[in-house]
Design a protein around this nucleic acid. Structure first.
Length: 221
DNA sequence: ACCCAGGTGTTTC
DNA sequence: GAAACACATGGG
């Protein structure tokens, strides 16, 4: 493989996806705070279910001008009430507790969203959630790795690991360190995965991702 | 009746 | 470390 082969391949994939799908305008949230709530709610959960929870939360905002209940509102609201509101997003007891603890930590330290170590120290915030917040709320150039990224990258033969740091390094070493690029790339991966790669089982005969990814990379070298 | 969804923390070998 | 398990709703 040529020295720059891997790099060219990754750039080609991005350009191809961008040309095909266009800008995705992520994260689907109106404010940084709403983005962070969504990041926690969407853990191992379909986004359509998270939307139901987000919409329920919007119903409790204090003023019509407020797009979303404040950090303080979430932090101080009765636990049972929050559980009920976010119930459609699944794991609702865990998530209600973790959301309130996160909200309290944020009130105590407003710089939390731009500090990776602090984010990771929060209960219920792992590497993907932390990096999502760094990228989509704090606009830092951090590449987000999720189940789709691993699945697509692995099946396309880009890499052969599931280890978070390794997959992240793979992309960051092959791309300029730009938040806008990482933002768009991750969103495009999700978009692609939702359309063509709907099975977890790598041996799934009907999963068209092998063929589609070959298509996506055709002409890349 | 399955399988899947934009993970994380805990327990156990 | 890595593997297994709990956490829970809703859609295909």
């Amino acid at each position: 493989m040529p020295v720059n082969g891997g790099k060219a391949r990754v750039r080609f994939l991005y350009n191809r996806l961008y040309k095909h799908y266009g800008p995705q305008r992520w994260w689907p949230a109106r404010t940084a705070w709403e983005m962070m709530v969504g990041a926690i709610l969407t853990q191992n959960t379909a986004w359509s279910n998270v939307e139901k929870a987000i919409n329920a939360l919007r119903g409790v905002r204090a003023h019509r001008s407020a797009p979303f209940p404040s950090v303080e509102t979430i932090a101080t609201m009765p636990r049972r009430r929050l559980e009920k509101l976010i119930r459609p997003s699944g794991y609702f007891r865990q998530k209600a507790e973790r959301l309130q603890r996160f909200a309290r930590a944020l009130l105590k330290d407003p710089s939390l969203p731009r500090r990776r170590e602090r984010l990771l120290a929060q209960h219920g915030v792992g590497p993907e959630t932390a990096d999502s917040i760094l990228l989509y709320a704090a606009h830092q150039p951090v590449f987000v790795v999720d189940a789709y990224t691993r699945r697509i990258g692995r099946r396309m033969g880009l890499f052969n690991t599931d280890e978070y740091a390794e997959v992240q390094a793979f992309f960051q070493e092959r791309l300029p360190r730009e938040a806008a690029l990482y933002n768009e790339f991750h969103a495009l991966i999700v978009r692609l995965a939702k359309e063509v790669c709907t099975k977890r089982d790598p041996t799934c005969a009907v999963c068209p991702v092998q063929a589609d990814c070959a298509y996506a990379l055709r002409g890349s070298r």
